[in-house]
Amino acid sequence: MWEKSQATPHPAARQIQLDLHRTLTGNQRFSSPSSPATQQLHRVLLAFSWQNPTIGYCQGLNRLAALALLVLQDEEEAFWCLVAVVESIMPQEYYSKTLTASQVDQRVLKELMAEKLPRLSAHLEQLQVDASHFTFNWFLVAFIESLPVHILLRVWDAFLYEGSKVLFRYALALFKYREEDILKIQDKVDMYQYLRFFTKTITDGRKLMSIAFSDMNPFPMRLLSSRRAAHLERVQAELSELERIQQEYAAAQDAERAKRSNKDLDAAGSEDEDEV
């Protein structure tokens, strides 16, 4: 696959190249574009784009692959780990061209927050802060770069073993862990500033885990599946509606432009023609 990718560049190759030196920049092994780890990352991502042409490359896959490389060391194993996460553990369409399943999960999370953390959810609502602006990142890369490493690896153990439901458990647990702090914030901009970094300051991994796996119960898989199915329909409907609006706008713009250029031609004939 590597040889094939050398012969014909994949359409995703440019974006992969662009992101290589923008991956886990805090980590020594990825700090230089010429470092062996960066080269390995390059090959894993290119190979993946051939393995799964529908997805090709989605920003975020670089972080998943980089973590796999750091832990597994071996390039081929890291590749298969990436394949497993994207194709088996995460729902379909998570990294697709429209990120449909990612968007679905954010709606599901919002609902679960309202049920399991009603005070916090109402508070965010009141400040008109949409938590999905932050949680979207958490889910897409399973908390990489959002949590301190020692906690991240614990989360990943459960994530690899139990699947994507774990992401919901930990997302809810993170909010629960800092619920009192969040409730104190009364300014919208301050809230945005707080939510973008607070996960990095969590230190007690044991406490977080206990919230995720006992306080958040009951959490049957059936519930998650049915919520996902319901929201999937809605998101798909909205996406096609948006598509339609944008096409109409683009068509109107084209018509406008054509009209204008005709007018320019007319104006060339009679300079001071009145506007209608």
Binding site: R22, T23, Q59
Partner: peptide, 23 residues
């Protein structure tokens, strides 16, 4: 050494424009 952005990032700053403070 910046990471690429996933989704959205935020920043804020207060500036002075024409005698008004704008955040």
């Amino acid at each position: 050494d910046s990471n690429h952005t996933i989704g959205v990032e935020f920043g804020s700053r207060v500036v002075n424009v024409g005698g008004k403070t704008v955040k």
